[in-house]
Amino acid sequence: MTLQAERATGAAGAAPSGHERPTATRRRFGRVAGWLGAMPYLLFLAVFLIAPIATNVWTSFQVDGSFSLASMARLFEPQYRDAFMQTIRLSLLTAGAGGVLGLILAWALATSERPKWLRNLVLSFSAVASQLGGVALAFAFVAAIGVQGLVTRMILSLTGWSLSDSIQLASFWGIALVYLYFQVPLMAILMLPAFGALKKQWSEAAYSLGASRFRYLRDIAFPIMWPPIIGALLLLFANSFSAYATAYALAGGRVNLVPILIGFFISGNVMTDDSFAAALVTGMIVIVVAAMGLRTLLERRSNKWLR
């Protein structure tokens, strides 16, 4: 056992020691064993993740059993293009607003020192809130600022202004507001490590060399912080783009969003057209993958600094 473990280390290249000479058969055995060991995991993902997605993409390019771009082309019909534009606008809005507010929250979390309990309370609550969402959050917001909601009635009796008339939950702005509930803490949580990597010595060095606060932010903080900031914004964008449950529970079909549209196609509320439904999904995947791929590229860059 000891020997085997040591040889495995050598074969893996973790410790390139001179007197280690793995024979060809042993190396081949290692490779086969590796594939065999990973096989259950790979098979599982192949059946339940890769195959469904591949089938979906394949279907979106098939009309009546032959290759066709017709379904994908239909994505540009006004009704569906509008859905994509609405979803993109919603995602940009919630990522942008959530990003700015989340950045402020992250700054407060990263730099606050004195009341430790307060910081920890906000931190743990941010962690939970960034995970909330879905149906429960939607109903909680209905209870707060819906037509009969607690806050609505309170404001109405205090000022006579009806909140629910101005911000309807079952509308674009209502959905955006609810999304912010998880986007802001998510941004804060994502940005915390980056703030932590901004070493205090850098600002001290800059100030002692006579830099102003603005100069420090422009020449030192910003160049280091922008890749993680953009990366986090892209994640927020993807997050909001692919959200379904919250929007559905809030608005049903009243807002023209891509995930809700796809939901209607799948549950058969509108005419069944497998190929076109699949094309909608493919369009959605392309956008989310683009956002997340860009994030990965940026992260490679930012990892240089955030060690």
């Binding site: 469904p52 692919s242 995947i285 993958v289 997340m292």
Partner: peptide
């Protein structure tokens, strides 16, 4: 087989870019 780890780790984040609703459809 630590050499397999980068592959399995890469695969593990794929669900991350596939929206739940896309998985349902597929």
């Amino acid at each position: 087989a630590p050499r397999m780890l980068p592959l399995t780790e890469w695969l593990s984040v794929v669900p991350y870019v596939v929206p739940a609703i896309a998985l349902v459809s597929g």
